[in-house]
Nucleic acid binder design. Structure first.
Lengths: 110, 110
DNA sequence: CAGTATCCGACTGGATACTG
DNA sequence: CAGTATCCAGTCGGATACTG
């Protein structure tokens, strides 16, 4: 077996790792927020315009959670009026192709 | 652009497709159940032994949901005592590599 | 502008006891 | 054997009003 034959996906199911993944993905809007953001850097208000139907409370909560998980970063500019920009972290961008592929699973089960 | 350049993952985020995928994945045990089953065919009792910590109610409910989604099939044998076997459908097996890769996302965010 | 605070109904998951 | 039925606590998401 060469290194290129090695796939981490051959690992046994691990509940804590799965739960980490689920915390990035699950929640009614979490994955959608990540995919809509993509590689852009967007201000809070712009994000909420791109995500109609997501209430303020939920959007703020999801963003906070995604920042805490290390998926997104939040940059606050000390201006008046205040400006906050959101973007994926390096890890988030690294995971983006995988996250996009999750949509393929959805297409399979329609 | 040739067919091999075409990736469905380049699609714009689509909420209803994402929600289909989430219904396969989300729930505290749903993905774990799929990955533990894998390509095996298992009886209900064997499954519940492999999934300690999942209550009867939840396991039965998750299995029912996964069958309804077309991820799993349930085969009832008209024997006494009754025997029921669960296995992934063709679609489920087709999606299995993608589903396993979700664990990689989890490993990234530890 | 970029969030909080509050209230609320609906849904999730767990424990336990029971059944065709 | 393979589930149901019941109850219950906790969480999730939505609506709305308010704030540094």
């Amino acid at each position: 077996m060469t290194p290129s034959d090695f796939h981490e996906s051959d690992f046994e199911p691990d509940l804590s790792i799965i739960n980490n993944a689920l915390s990035v993905i699950c929640g009614k809007w979490r994955l959608y927020i990540i995919l809509v953001l993509g590689e852009q850097t967007l201000r809070y208000t712009k994000l909420s315009e791109l995500l109609p139907g997501v209430s303020e409370k939920v959007l703020a909560g999801e963003l906070k959670a995604l920042v805490a998980l290390g998926v997104m970063k939040r940059v606050l500019y000390a201006e008046i009026p205040s400006r906050v920009e959101y973007a994926l972290t390096e890890k988030g961008i690294f995971a983006l192709p995988q996250l996009r592929q999750i949509q393929q699973i959805g297409q399979l089960f329609t």
